[in-house]
Amino acid sequence: MEHDRQNPAFYALLVALIFMAVGPIFLMFVNSFKLDVDIIGGTSGLLFLPTIQNYETALCDILWYEPDHIDFCSLKFGGAFINSLIIALISTFLTLVIGCMAAYALVRFRFMGRDTASLTTLMVRMVPPAVLLVPVFGLWNNEFCLDRDGLIGGWIRDTFGGRGDVCLAGTHSGIILVYVAMNLPFVIWILQSFIVQVPRSLEEAARVDGAGPFQVFFRVVLPLIKPGLAAAAIFTFRIAWNEYLLASALSDRNTKTVPILIVNNMSEFNVEWGVIMATGMLLAIPPIIFTLFASRQIITGMTAGAVKG
């Protein structure tokens, strides 16, 4: 492809834009390798001795050795990271499977209640997490519980310990459930625009060959909408991985996710910038990797979501 020549001012603008977009992230990256003395003391720029001490402090609970500079491992980052990973991966997987089945039904079948379902999906897409906070907190703590005298609840309590009723709040599945529900409308909406493009003749051919509806769906339709699935997966993962508010309301000490950990450490009086930047960097790495490798899918998904709305 032939590229046009542009004048130098244009390139200067481009460089400035890139600097503005990436600068803050780069700054955090650099600072996460600095000691607090260096960050506060003002040895600005790149002239400093890089150290991985901050990362050691952050990850102290899963390191196989004991770093010299830590007396007591107070920051349980490793555990939170694993929680985040479990919650984000499982909820992304569930959302995708359930979402693309629903999207397929909405696009390909005429059935009673189809319009209601499609309209409801569109409407609940705008519900912000803050609105769900109060009811979800109340329900997950008080209503979605297994009675302590009941069969399953009693079994869980005997096996895992604990007193009183067994509730959804404070478990991984509680957070996963609300993330799946929250992301479903968006995934259904975005996948509809991809499924519409699958030629009907392919599905009919498969049906003539004797494939059942589920076979047609999993063998014919799914492989064809892979780009859409990738885009939907990235967006769902991003929300589940980054979400703070609902996770903070639903998690307990053992199911904390990384964003909660960062916010808790930020609100302390004396912020340890180096360590905080290291944890922030660790939280930012998975989305950054996704962006670098799948930016095309992300952009396709974004435009499909907005332009075809």
């Binding site: 977009a21 990436v22 803050p24 992230i25 700054l27 955090m28 991003r238 991985w241 980054n242 703070y244 964003p259 960062i262 916010v263 930020m266 905080i276 930047m277 922030g280 939280l283 930012a284 989305p287 950054i288 996704f290 962006t291 930016s295 992300i298 952009i299």
Partner: peptide, 14 residues
Amino acid sequence: ILPMMIAPVVVGLM
């Protein structure tokens, strides 16, 4: 698109 992919918590922190 990097800025909008990373966590809002991290953006606030930066």
